[in-house]
């Protein structure tokens, strides 16, 4: 399971801090919605493609994959517009969405997940005032990432166990014989993990971080 969309390269775009890239992305989306004219939208789209392929040296496949994922959406939107409003609005809308999707794909492909987690923690820092501990956000992200393959593995195991007993694993009965046991198992597992974390002092994380370099 390849679990990241990051493409390692040593370019300027990669070195730009994640926070700045996110701000630029937000700025771009404000621009193309505030000034929805063909030159502006085409210019934005062109600039994004140049930054992505030339400056950040991303393989075209990275951008094509994101485009492929939204192609039917864009086709459907274009057809709806061609029928209901006019072709120009359809073109403009599709190009605008394409520019935003590609820009976001460039940010994602040039920024490490860890850098993004750091931005999330920084954004959440004001929440300390309402009792949220930003350091625990990293913990909960790490737990979720570990649980994903674990759930898939447990699901396989339960399905095998039921099949070995000749039980049904499909339909509404399958729901009772596989999905419910799976949920109960992983709930118990989550509880066990939390007890193990508490036993190792996960609950003692100070509310205000003392050393800003420590994560």
């Amino acid at each position: 399971m390849t679990l990241a969309l990051y493409v390692p390269r040593g370019t300027v775009v990669h070195r730009t801090p994640a926070g700045w890239k996110l701000l630029a992305l937000a700025g771009l989306s404000v621009l193309v919605f505030a000034v929805p004219t063909l030159p502006v939208v085409c210019g934005a789209l062109g600039a994004v493609v140049v930054v992505g392929l030339v400056v950040a040296r991303l393989p075209a496949a990275v951008l094509l994959r994101q485009t492929r994922a939204v192609r039917w959406m864009l086709v459907a939107i274009f057809i709806l517009h061609a029928v209901l409003t006019d072709v120009l609005t359809g073109t403009l809308t599709v190009l605008r969405l394409l520019a935003l999707v590609l820009a976001a794909a460039v940010v994602t492909a040039t920024t490490r997940v860890t850098a993004m987690v750091a931005v999330v923690e920084r954004i959440c820092r004001p929440l300390e005032w309402v009792g949220v501990r930003p350091a625990r956000i990293g913990l909960v992200i790490a737990m979720a990432l570990r649980f994903i393959p674990l759930i898939a593995e447990r699901a396989d195991r339960i399905r095998d166990a039921q099949a070995a007993r000749g039980g049904s694993v499909r339909g509404l009965r399958g729901l009772r014989t596989t999905v419910v046991p799976l949920l109960v198992q992983v709930l118990q597992l989550a509880h066990t993990v939390s007890e193990a974390l508490d036993a190792r002092g996960a609950d003692d994380v100070p509310l205000r971080r003392r050393d800003p370099r420590a994560t």
Partner: peptide
């Protein structure tokens, strides 16, 4: 948050900030 920080967890195999810019 997991999707936004760049993990392809949506059913279409996509992720990243792109999906929050889409329709």
């Amino acid at each position: 948050v997991l999707v936004a920080i760049g993990l392809p967890l949506l059913a279409s195999g996509t992720g990243g900030l792109a999906v929050f810019a889409g329709p």
